[in-house]
Computed example of a mutant assay.
Amino acid sequence: MTRSWLTGPTPTRKLPRDRIEERILNLLGSQNMCVLATTGADGPLATPVRFYAHEFTVMFTASPKSPKMRNLAADPRVSIGVFAPLVGLASSRGAQLFGTARVLEPGDPDRERYWPSFRWENEHAERGRSLAEPPADSLVVVEPERIVYTEHWLRRDGYAPRQFWRRSA
């Protein structure tokens, strides 16, 4: 046994709000891939997506004709899974975000709030596009209403490995 603190009953103690927020922001700021879950006429769709975070908001661009965008047009409610690489139970760390996706087109005044956090230059460089011209793609933003955060390392300090956050605390 390498981590005795993983044995025994699972703690139920909640982290203070500021500490859970810090952990969630750390996860969102240190990862760039998520799984976006949408629902459409053909049922559920889980899509790997490269994302960027602006505080608790997750954002990405997508082709308007993609299945995920068709699904979002029909039902903008989403679930997003973000996780860190796993090397064992003790390293398990991730979050499920639940919210409503908004599609912000170029010229939408709300877009300016998020755009500085979107690192479009990386993708443009990969595609050989000019860095002088920002993309005109739709920007999808999801401001989660609630987040379920999981981190088994919290057990070591007597906290529940699953913590719950709501936008309106």
Results as ranks from 00 to 15, higher is better:
73 A>G: 11
110 D>S: 04
23 R>L: 14
43 G>E: 14
169 A>D: 15
79 S>D: 02
21 E>P: 01
67 P>I: 04
91 S>V: 02
130 S>T: 11
141 V>W: 05
8 G>P: 08
138 S>F: 03
59 M>N: 11
51 F>T: 09
117 S>G: 11
73 A>D: 15
132 A>D: 15
78 V>Y: 10
169 A>L: 08
162 R>T: 10
104 L>G: 05
152 H>F: 11
89 L>S: 08
158 G>T: 12
126 E>K: 06
99 G>H: 00
131 L>M: 08
49 V>D: 14
102 R>C: 11
14 K>D: 14
104 L>H: 09
54 H>M: 01
2 T>L: 07
89 L>T: 13
63 S>M: 09
127 R>M: 11
145 E>P: 03
92 S>K: 10
133 E>A: 12
153 W>E: 15
12 T>H: 11
154 L>Q: 13
117 S>W: 06
15 L>I: 12
58 V>Y: 05
110 D>K: 00
56 F>D: 09
16 P>V: 02
30 S>K: 07
133 E>L: 03
28 L>W: 05
116 P>H: 09
63 S>L: 10
160 A>F: 00
131 L>P: 08
152 H>T: 14
24 I>T: 08
93 R>H: 10
85 P>L: 07
140 V>A: 06
53 A>E: 14
113 R>E: 15
32 N>Q: 07
153 W>C: 07
3 R>W: 12
85 P>V: 10
98 F>A: 03
49 V>R: 09
126 E>T: 13
115 W>E: 15
30 S>I: 05
163 Q>R: 02
165 W>Y: 02
157 D>M: 01
129 R>W: 14
17 R>K: 11
21 E>C: 00
15 L>G: 13
121 E>G: 00
13 R>A: 05
109 P>T: 04
91 S>C: 04
101 A>E: 15
132 A>K: 13
162 R>E: 15
60 F>E: 04
60 F>T: 03
62 A>K: 00
78 V>K: 03
157 D>V: 00
122 N>G: 12
33 M>C: 07
55 E>P: 10
57 T>I: 06
105 E>T: 07
149 Y>F: 11
157 D>R: 01
